[in-house]
Design a binder for these strands. Sequence first.
DNA 1: GGGAAAACATTGAATGTTCAACCTTTGGCG
DNA 2: CGCCAAAGGTTGAACATTCAATGTTTTCCC
Lengths: 147, 147
Amino acid sequence: MARTPAQKPAISDHLAYLLAQANREINRQLESHLRKEGVPVEQWRILTILSDGKGHSMGELADAVLLNHPTLTKTIDRMVSDALVYRVQDPTDRRRVLMHLSDRGKVLAKRLTSLAQRQEDHIIRSYGDKSTSELKRLLESLIDSTN
Amino acid sequence: MARTPAQKPAISDHLAYLLAQANREINRQLESHLRKEGVPVEQWRILTILSDGKGHSMGELADAVLLNHPTLTKTIDRMVSDALVYRVQDPTDRRRVLMHLSDRGKVLAKRLTSLAQRQEDHIIRSYGDKSTSELKRLLESLIDSTN
DNA sequence: GGGAAAACATTGAATGTTCAACCTTTGGCG
DNA sequence: CGCCAAAGGTTGAACATTCAATGTTTTCCC
C-alpha cells in the first residue's frame, strides 16, 4: 500500500529560519547602502533613534536598537571617540546616562537617513508596494504577539 | 497656514528594522526551546540540513545555514569535537569536504526536531495559523525577490 | 599538455560580542 | 533614619565572528 512519504521537516518551513534568512538578506542590502558613509547598521539605528533630540538612557537605547547592554556600551564608546554622540549624566537619577547627538552626529544622521530611505525605496520597487506594507503589518503584529 | 508635521522617519517604519526585531524575538524563543539540549540555533540548523543523509560540502552548508565560510569551519570544528558530525573528502573533487551526521548527531537531531516543532506550534497558537502561513509566504517571496 | 585563473576550504590576527562580576545610586520599608 | 534589595551602567575575561591571506585542487584555454 502506497503511503504518503513521511516528508522530512524542511528547515525552510520554519518561521525562525525564514526570518533569519530574510533578515540576513535585507541587512546585507542595507549595509551596502550605508557603506558609502562607512557606518555599521547598528550605528545607523543609534543615530536614528537619537535624532529625536531627546536624551535617551542606555537602557532605553539598548532596547530600541536591539543590542544588549554591554555591546551597546562598547559601541557607544566607539561613537564617542568618533565624536558622533556624547554622554550626559541624568540630573534626576545619577545612575542613568543620557545620550545625545553631537553636531557631527546630526549631520551624519541626516545623510544616513537618506541612504536608508534609498534602500527602502529599492525594496518597494523590486518587491512591490502592496507586499511590503502587508509584510510590515504582519511583522508588527508578530512582534506584538511575543510580548 | 497649518502644515502637516514633517513626520520624522521612525526607525520602526523600516522593513530592515522590523525584520531584525522579529528575528531577534523569534530567535530568542527558539534558543530557549533548544536550551533543553544546550545546542545553539546554528548547530540546530546544521544538524537539520545534514539530516537528509546526503553529504553536504562546506560551501553548500554555509549557504544553507546562513553562516559565512570561516564561521562555519570553526563551528564544524566544535561539532566534530563533540562527535556530532564528521568530515569526508569528496572522492570526485578533492578540494571539497563532505559533511555527515554521526550516530550521536542523528539522535540529537531527532530530539531537536521535536523541540523546534514545539516552538513552531507555540508561535502558531499565539499568532494564528492564518497569519503565520501568510507571513511565511511573504517572507519567501521577499527572499526570492532579492536574488 | 601546461600554465594561469578560479573554486574550495582553512588559518591567524583583528575585531566584536557575551557572560558574570562589579560599582554606584536609588527606592522600599521596618 | 538606616539598611538591603533592585536598577542602571560599565568592565574584563572568555568566546565567537570576520577579514585577508594561504594552500590545494580543479578548470579553462591556448
